[in-house]
Amino acid sequence: MHHPHRRAILPKRIILVRHGESQGNLDTSAYSTIPDNKIPLTPEGITQARHAGAQLKQFISADASSPNWRVYFYVSPYERTRSTLREIGRSFSKKRVIGVREECRIREQDFGNFQVKERMKAVKETRERFGRFFYRFPEGESAADVFDRVSSFLESLWRDVDMNRLHHDPSHDLNLIIVSHGLALRVFLMKWFKWTVEQFEYLNNLGNCGIRVMQLGSGGEYSLAIHHTEEEMLEWGLSPEMIADQKWRAKAARGEWNEHCPWYLDAFFDNLADSDESVDTDDQTNSFNSCA
């Protein structure tokens, strides 16, 4: 169904923010005595979060074409993400924040319950051999499991936007800010941009309070290439083809198919004929007969 108002209420930016440095980042033995969801920020993590808030405020407000901007937050329920959000919030006035929602589906990957340091080291070594996306932690989750719940969250996010559950005034530029965890945010980008499992395996984790800005392009597609440089995207693990796709999205009309992106077809087929006439039907017939 066509929504004539949809283009007007699309968020100008969807901004992904990883939490600040946590006690677990500083000392992994913390996970053996503190539940993962209760791991706090370190003093450095609090400083990082305050700096991230100032950074977000600066580049959002620097857009002279949209002085009437607003922000809406989604946050993981973990202590370190909620604390990060509180510190980020110090940079914004009540006028600018139209809402916040705790969202359990963007929580950290589940590594099990209390985590014994020596055992987790061996488990993570096994994950490197098995592959980061499909390896499921004993009593925990795989990145593929996180992908499923993040995909569900994305569907809800679009319903929130489509039905204006965020109570967003279309005359104001909306910035959605998602405060979450490293793997969940990489999976979010993977789902959004239709990256393959192989491409995911090459992605680097965001640093503490790392920021990724997906900005709405002139044609209605979101792109990382509007705010971020090619050098930054290479550092994050994006291939030249993935970066070319981001640049294409910056100007592409919404819903267009990027036929120039190699992984859309070339990664799955060895040789596709250019036309029906180019297909050798005799070879096809012989192949089917040999399988009968």
Rank of each mutant, 00 (worst) to 15 (best):
R127C: 10
F130H: 10
F130I: 10
G131K: 08
G131A: 05
R132P: 00
R132H: 06
F133V: 03
F134S: 03
F134R: 06
F134H: 07
E139S: 10
G140H: 05
E141K: 03
S142N: 05
A144Q: 09
A144E: 11
D145S: 01
V146T: 15
V146K: 08
F147M: 08
F147P: 01
D148K: 11
R149H: 05
V150P: 02
S151L: 10
S152T: 14
F153T: 08
E155D: 14
S156I: 13
L157R: 07
L157A: 06
R159V: 13
V161Q: 06
V161F: 07
D162A: 14
R165Y: 13
R165M: 13
H167G: 07
H167P: 00
H168N: 14
H168S: 15
D169P: 04
D169Q: 05
L174N: 03
I177P: 02
I178P: 02
I178E: 12
V179R: 00
V179E: 07
S180Y: 07
H181D: 05
G182L: 13
G182T: 11
G182K: 08
G182H: 13
L183E: 13
L185P: 00
L185R: 02
L185H: 01
R186A: 04
R186H: 07
V187I: 15
F188R: 01
W192Y: 14
T196G: 00
V197C: 02
V197P: 00
E198H: 10
Q199T: 09
Q199M: 13
Q199Y: 04
F200R: 01
Y202M: 12
Y202W: 13
Y202G: 08
L203H: 07
N204W: 12
N205K: 15
N205P: 08
N205R: 15
L206Y: 12
L206C: 06
G207L: 10
N208Q: 11
N208V: 04
C209H: 05
C209L: 09
C209R: 04
G210T: 07
G210F: 12
G210M: 11
R212Q: 11
R212Y: 14
M214W: 02
Q215D: 08
L216H: 04
G217W: 03
G217Q: 02
G217V: 03
G217E: 02
S218K: 14
S218M: 12
S218R: 13
G219Y: 08
Y222K: 01
S223C: 03
L224W: 07
L224E: 01
L224H: 04
L224P: 02
L224K: 06
A225D: 03
H227F: 11
H227M: 10
H227N: 05
E230I: 12
E232T: 11
E232R: 15
